[in-house]
């Protein structure tokens, strides 16, 4: 059977693989090469070694600022989103009236696109700050917390449904047995529910981590990096280096490679952790 399928490579694998090579593999390899060159269009690239990387980390202050801003934002988002999402999931698995409607409402923002989300929150935050005569571009801290609120609004519902699925998989006999043994509600949560939903916790932590770290559309729409690029996250800073500064394409590409390496490292750690969890199970 395998042999007869193999002959059909052009029909089955070719279309997906070809477009994948054109839009991903070739640009990826070319991108790594170009990060070591100076260029404005791809054709006029001249090799300059690691100069772009040096520029990205020294002369170009924006990159390290963006990296620090992104790390801070990601840290706060991961903690807040998962705390609220898990709490809501606990409340929504108690069989309370209206659970379905609540779940629908909390999940909905997740479907709205990043650009629209950004402008919705731009309106709301400027409306609140406007009563004090300020707006979101007045100080970087407003943009920071604005992004955190936005991220919570968008991701809480998403993580909540994953936590709900995890909690519903906890056998009710296990909880009842603990209760019969006289465990307090807190102790049931700590010693029965949380250990049983650890796989969901790992998934949600990494989903919020990568989603926050790679954020672009929401950042562009909410603050656009203002004031003075202080609220630019990594993806936006890379975009602006490519398209906003002539002659800096090589630096932009070098920043993109560093960005990729950080995201790959996060993914690698996740793979190690989930792999180990599965061995234990």
């Amino acid at each position: 059977m395998e042999k007869s399928i193999k002959k059909y490579f052009p029909v089955f694998l070719m279309p997906a693989a070809l477009s994948f090579f054109i839009v991903f593999i070739i640009p990826f390899v070319l991108g790594i090469y170009l990060s070591f060159t100076e260029f404005t269009t791809v054709e006029n690239a001249s090799f300059i070694g690691i100069q772009n990387y040096i520029t990205a980390f020294t002369r170009d202050k924006n990159f390290l600022n963006a990296l620090w801003f992104t790390v801070k934002f990601t840290f706060v988002s991961v903690i807040t989103v998962n705390f609220f999402a898990f709490s809501l999931a606990l409340l929504l698995t108690k069989g309370i009236k209206g659970t379905k409607v609540f779940r629908t409402v909390f999940f909905m923002p997740n479907l709205i696109g990043g650009i629209v989300l950004g402008y919705i929150w731009n309106l709301l935050i400027n409306a609140v700050l406007g009563t004090f005569g300020l707006d979101i571009t007045y100080d970087a801290k407003y943009g920071f917390w604005g992004l955190v609120f936005l991220m919570n609004w968008q991701l809480i519902g998403y993580m909540m449904v994953i936590y709900i699925a995890g909690i519903q998989n906890v056998p009710s006999e296990l909880i009842e047995a603990a209760q019969i043994d006289g465990a307090s509600r807190f102790s049931v949560l700590r010693n029965v529910i949380i250990p049983m939903v650890m796989p969901s916790v790992t998934i949600c932590l990494f989903l919020t981590l990568t989603n926050s770290f790679k954020l672009f559309d929401q950042n562009l729409a909410l603050t656009g990096g203002a004031p003075a690029k202080q609220t630019s996250m990594l993806a936006l800073d890379i975009y602006n280096t490519f398209y906003g500064r002539i002659g800096y394409q090589g630096v932009g590409q070098a920043k993109a490679v560093v960005f990729f390496l950080i995201v790959a490292l996060i993914a690698f750690i996740q793979l190690k952790i989930t792999g180990r969890k599965e061995e234990e199970a």
Binding site: F28, F242, F260
Partner: peptide, 25 residues
Amino acid sequence: TIYYLFLFSMIVPFQMVMFTMVYIC
């Protein structure tokens, strides 16, 4: 190999291939 390349692409941020992909496309 192709399968692992597909998997690999899932972790690569768009900005990594953005400029060169636009050029080629």
